[in-house]
């Protein structure tokens, strides 16, 4: 999804950033602030989330901040359905996630794939 949404805007990205961290060259406005916010929320770090939220509101405004929080929380639900029901991981992105892309991103190192 990320790669497709970047390509349609004529932008390139290093997909390894999903697992290894994005560098400063990624062509998404405020990517660093977004990633920091996402990580703080996943880690349930209240102080870090508060700091990240302040930065989010400063650069995205309140509406952008609310939508970002909604999206981050949505993926706390999606991952649990996918992982607990055991839907086939080869069906991700409607089967369009090529094996080489999974390798490049680092998904093949995930427990579920390595244990398969």
């Amino acid at each position: 999804m990320l790669r497709e949404s970047m390509q349609i805007e004529g932008k390139q990205m290093d997909v390894r950033g999903v697992t290894q961290g994005f560098n400063e060259h990624i062509e998404v406005p405020h990517a660093d602030v977004l990633v920091e916010f996402a990580e703080a929320v996943v880690l349930q770090d209240a102080a870090r989330t508060a700091r990240a939220s302040k930065n989010m509101r400063a650069v995205l405004g309140d509406e952008g901040f609310v939508d970002a929080a909604a999206i981050v929380s949505a993926f706390h639900g999606f991952v649990r359905i996918a992982d607990a029901i055991g839907i086939p991981y080869t069906s991700a992105a409607q089967g369009q996630d090529l094996p080489e892309l999974r390798e490049q991103v680092g998904i093949n190192e995930f427990y579920r794939v390595k244990g398969a």
Binding site: M1, A31, A38, V41, F110
Partner: peptide, 17 residues
């Protein structure tokens, strides 16, 4: 792309494939 960066990072941190 901002939406999908959030989605991808959260999913990766949960090791969701």
């Amino acid at each position: 792309p901002q939406t999908e960066i959030l989605a991808a990072r959260v999913s990766a941190m949960h090791q969701c494939v």
